[in-house]
Computed example of a mutant assay.
Amino acid sequence: MFILDIFSLQQNIDFSLRSLTISLLLGTLLSLALKIHYQRFGMSLSNRVAFSKVFVFITLTTTLIISIVKSSIALSLGLVGALSIVRFRTPIKEPEELAYLFMCIAVGLGLGANQWLATIVATTIILIVTIRWKRSEDQSLFLSLDWEKSHNIDLDQLQNCLLKFICDCDLRRFDSRDEREEVIYYINIANSDNLLSLIQKLKTDFPQIGISFLDKTTIPGV
């Protein structure tokens, strides 16, 4: 009797291999678009390339799961039980990372439910809107530069170098100790490409200088 019930349950599952293939192909394209979008317009200063590698995997996995369980209540309940034992050990450092992960899951849910057109249209609109939003925002950072006194670095020359790559530069602190000097600037920078160019320029023009960046959002009360 139990075997007959299982056989009957399997017969009730409406699974289309053709629909799954289309969903996986669309999921691959959309997740790659999300990956490129995050690498190009993401505000994180590091780890964008490594972090975005999981987008395709998460999207396709979600698509597969939804495609399998959408037509079976029993499988849906089993999925809830299986997910209840899953624990993520790696913390999400920034809200932006969580937003992109949710986007990958949303794409997988839409494609797994065969809502292809709605998913494509919604994803396209979201990516376009966030491109315009991210382009309108500058990233505010604290830039710390230090060097040995014997190098006699000209602050005017240093600031002129900074202004070639950043939107705004404000000197917040200058320390002169026995053997070293340090300046801290509050800067606004348009994107990470400018930041990388600035670092390369500083290393070229002032090879003896030490460079540190600090996102102001990580400082309590700022």
Results as ranks from 00 to 15, higher is better:
121 V>S: 06
95 P>K: 09
130 T>G: 06
112 G>Q: 09
138 D>K: 15
142 F>L: 13
1 M>D: 15
207 P>G: 00
98 L>I: 01
62 T>D: 13
188 N>D: 06
220 P>D: 01
105 I>N: 05
8 S>T: 11
77 L>R: 00
24 L>W: 03
44 S>F: 02
27 G>K: 07
164 K>C: 14
22 I>W: 10
173 R>Y: 14
161 C>H: 05
40 R>K: 06
110 G>K: 01
94 E>L: 07
114 N>I: 11
152 N>V: 00
91 P>S: 07
121 V>W: 10
27 G>A: 10
8 S>R: 15
27 G>R: 07
58 I>L: 11
202 L>H: 01
170 D>L: 15
20 L>H: 03
219 I>M: 08
179 E>H: 12
199 I>R: 05
150 S>F: 06
4 L>W: 12
89 R>Y: 08
201 K>Y: 14
128 I>W: 07
197 S>H: 14
74 A>V: 09
72 S>H: 08
159 Q>V: 15
85 I>H: 09
185 Y>Q: 04
55 F>W: 02
91 P>M: 02
73 I>S: 06
88 F>D: 01
210 G>N: 13
16 S>Y: 07
148 E>L: 15
111 L>T: 03
158 L>H: 03
122 A>W: 13
33 A>W: 05
187 I>Q: 01
105 I>L: 10
136 S>M: 05
210 G>W: 14
22 I>Y: 11
128 I>L: 04
168 D>P: 14
159 Q>T: 13
214 L>R: 13
10 Q>R: 02
3 I>C: 10
200 Q>F: 14
149 K>R: 11
135 R>H: 11
121 V>T: 11
211 I>F: 08
112 G>D: 01
202 L>D: 02
181 E>K: 06
185 Y>I: 06
28 T>E: 07
39 Q>H: 08
155 L>F: 07
221 G>F: 07
220 P>E: 04
104 C>M: 13
42 G>E: 02
27 G>W: 00
35 K>S: 08
80 V>P: 09
168 D>E: 15
161 C>Q: 15
170 D>I: 14
116 W>Y: 12
177 R>H: 12
161 C>K: 14
51 F>V: 12
158 L>E: 12
166 I>W: 04
